[in-house]
Amino acid sequence: MKPSELLTRIVITVFNLGVVALSLALWAQTPLIHARIAEGGGWSPNVIQAKVGEPLHLKFTSDDVMHGFSVGQMEMQPVDIEPGKVSETTLTFTKPGIYTFFCTRWCGLNHWRMRGTVKVTGSETGTPEPVTPPLYVSLGLDLDKPHPVPFAPAGRPSAANGQKLAASLLNARFTTPDYYRSHAPAQLFDNLRSTGLSDSQRWDLVATVWQSNTTPAGLAEGKQLFAQNCAACHGEFGGGNGVFADDLAAAGTASMQTMNGDMAMSMQTPADFTNPQRMLGASPALLQGKILRGGMGTGMPMWGTIFTHEQIWNVIAYLYSFQFDYPK
């Protein structure tokens, strides 16, 4: 073999194998968190380890459609994860525990199944907060029991109209946050029977009380959370007719066939918050329970590890605005 032949062979082999080996090596050294739709496997990895006080640097990429990353109950800007691109964020946890991270951009019917956990270990920096059970537990509410009211207001109750009657006629007990959270609007309507007001005046008063338990900022946050997290199923205007409502109904029919008609475990059409019979019979505590726990197989996700209590109360306050007319 001539030297030129030998040299050429070496150059070709080294160069070509080098290109492949180098790219494989660089690829292996770049750990990415891959986001895929739930049907495609969801997050990979879906468990992330972290230490208290140590910055956690994360790099994401999406393998299919637009996704987002956020950690539940944590103040952070959600990270958009675009297909084929890499986005990064750095998180620092101050308390040990198990956190839930979740997808923030709707990526299909099973978007909400795209969740994972961050396991944060290390020593507590402050004193642990005492754990209190949520209100629906202490009230002993059955979340799955239907709660319809047999009557409904003739028109849309107006908080502004109720405001004019409020000063003289309200029992102080009805205006406390505790009363609001543990009673359905229909219960207050009942409790106002003795006032001698007309039905529509009493509903207006109910609206006033409900509004007094919100703030414009809280309603705005509730509205935003609803649009981002709820509207795809429950509809932009709460009518239970979001873009996935039909898919849920179809999935429900399918699951009923496979589960021998076990209704409790089947996907259902999303709740209609514009239905007065349904909404006026539900107390904030009951709604809080449904949001915290989820719908147990109905297709309603559990939000307990994602929203803070304040966020949930704001979403609930916004849900009642589908029933009541609040002045702007």
Partner: peptide, 19 residues
Amino acid sequence: AGFLFAITAGFVGTPVGSH
């Protein structure tokens, strides 16, 4: 080299075709 790199990229790179 470009051809081998394209094959490698298809196997280990992002599954998103347009990227």
